[in-house]
Write a protein that binds this DNA or RNA. Structure first.
Lengths: 347, 347
DNA sequence: ATGAAAGCGCTAACAA
DNA sequence: TTGTTAGCGCTTTCAT
């Protein structure tokens, strides 16, 4: 049995053809009504719309995609969906994509360059309208695949050495400045820092902003008080063990997980936070405000970053010129319980 | 300029037609080689494969989907991607889907029934091969849409009143039994419980398993020591405030977030954990092992659940009969630092 | 074992 | 303003 074409036949998905028949117009007119491309006689238009309603017609996105090269789908690649920051990115990106009439297909690359490549290839085969990705690997091959595909793309949260690629990032240098200024304003002079992996560009930027600001304002941050971590909780604890013999009153960790690990180890050592040591994190993850004392931290502007990323994709797609290839957004400081005045005894 | 068809022309995506021309066969033969449908002369096959390699040909999934009703895509709907448990589900589901040759499109419904419906409708329009979803709303409309679409689906993690729907869940009753038995074996007799919202079926099951086991083995759990929470951190703290005047030595929270809130409030009240009160959670989220003392908890078998869910989708798709409509998997107990022997003074 | 041709459901020339 | 028609790139009869 083929489709019957009768009104009210909702059990089988209706097609433009069915709608056309019911509305007594051609399929192209149906298409015109759906897509608002060229004007249609109001009366005809009404007939079509009513037929669409009657049959509960919804255009097959595969057919549309095949024909018009747009399936209203945007791909998002994140390195680790278990990381709350990336889950947040997924959430916001999806919200903005939906608002613009696009669905979002999320790929969790699991920090695996091969998987990242497989994902990109899959997205290309699905002819997505754009790809937003937080890049993990530096294999230029991936960038090449995506550039060849002519699919609009934008890199989010991690910046590339290359400058000619659309990118949306937090002002990482600024985050370092913010952390330093907050602690300096509380009277601290002896600083320590737990960084992320130094081979990541944004990590170096964060550190630079922090160290330069500390230096400029008379604080001290010798190399012995800098610990290179890996963004994991355990690294924070290890860092504090490592820094234990050194005297410092202010500590900035490059993410909240390491800050939490550091907090835990500081307390285990009998140090009071913030009375003996002030601590600042970065990310503003949800547990940050649950620990005791609640963590002072810097929040990334993920909402704005995602909005901007989706917006850039849509602009490129429409053939618009992008005013600035690199969008930099400001971090936000959340002052809570782990930062306080520098101990007066410390000189 | 149309596609050139020359070997090595990778800048424009090659099509079956290009491959056919290069291999000097018809497009149908190319299709046969790709899909291994009917046997192809080894020599011809080699020619085709080599052409595919040369042109870096990858079938357009929209075209394939349009024609064969399968775009190798499975949809996953979760109520909140920020919830680590659902992020974990996304991760595992994606892994198993990829292993089976499918991509996963993740939808974050944000606990919004309307959004859930929009998502389902979108997935239907994309003709996905299956839908896995952790259901939020009880609007039967959604189930109706998805059933009408004839797309294979399975409900994961949340069970429905309806029995005739493919479902994969943890044994929630068993989780309650496990929690109770662990605490009973440590000598506890005076129990308390922080539950999730009682209108959720799995919450009632958890509670039932806990209460029945406690009752059967001579423990006490009066209604005054049962607090209905909402799965959030703050609810755990509130619960403990509420239960404060009551004497209990063992507390089970229906998720880790509430357990952590409870732990925090217990410590604030000066109660020692586990010396005065033993505490058990559920979920085994990553921070569970980071707090002090590390949280004893029950882990959901998400990995197996996702594997099973994807497997069920694929079976239905192949037209196989599902042996059991409802798959129930066992939880796992992780004994850590928040549970210990009942205080001897407590009678 | 292989090829020719039809067609999935849609959009976009091109005509009228 | 509307209809006719030709594909998008693939799979799948139906012949051979």
């Amino acid at each position: 049995m083929k489709r019957s074409g009768e009104a009210g036949d909702k059990s089988v998905t209706a097609t433009v053809k069915d709608v056309a028949r019911l509305a007594r117009v051609s399929v192209s007119t149906v298409s015109r009504v759906i897509n608002n491309t060229v004007p249609v006689e109001p009366e005809t238009r009404e007939r079509v719309l009513s037929a669409i309603r009657d049959m509960d017609f919804r255009p097959n996105l595969l057919a549309r995609g095949l024909r018009s090269k747009s399936g209203n789908l945007i791909g998002l690649l994140v390195p680790d969906i278990l990381n709350e920051s990336f889950a947040l990115m997924s959430k916001y990106a999806e919200e903005y994509a939906e608002r613009a009439g696009f669905a979002l297909i999320i790929g969790n690359t699991n920090n695996d360059p091969d998987k990242e490549e497989r994902f990109i290839r899959d997205l290309v085969r699905r002819h997505v309208d754009g790809i937003v990705f937080s890049r993990v690997s530096d294999k230029s091959r991936i960038l090449q695949i995506i550039e060849e595909s002519k699919i609009p793309f934008v890199i989010i949260d991690r910046s590339l050495e290359q400058e000619d690629v659309p990118t949306v990032v937090m002002d990482n240098y600024g985050a370092g400045v913010t952390a330093a200024e907050h602690l300096l304003s509380l009277g601290h002079r002896r600083f320590a820092c737990i960084t992320g992996p130094m081979n990541i560009a944004i990590v170096r930027e964060r550190f630079l902003g922090f160290r330069e600001t500390v230096g400029l304002r008379g604080g001290s941050l010798p190399d012995s008080r800098v610990y290179e971590g890996n963004f994991k909780y355990e690294a924070g604890a290890r860092a504090v063990e490592h820094l234990a013999r050194d005297q410092f009153t202010a500590l900035w960790a490059h993410n909240d997980l390491m800050a939490l690990g550091a907090l835990n180890e500081l307390q285990r050592q009998g140090k009071r936070v913030p009375e003996d040591v002030s601590l600042v994190g970065l990310d503003n993850i949800s547990i940050a405000k649950m620990v005791v004392p609640p963590l002072t931290t810097i929040g990334q502007p993920f909402r704005e970053m995602c909005e901007s990323a989706v917006d850039i994709i849509l602009r490129i797609r429409r053939g618009e010129k992008i005013p600035q290839l690199r969008v930099t957004l400001s971090p936000e400081l959340f002052v809570r319980g782990t930062s306080g005045p520098a101990p007066t005894s410390a000189t």
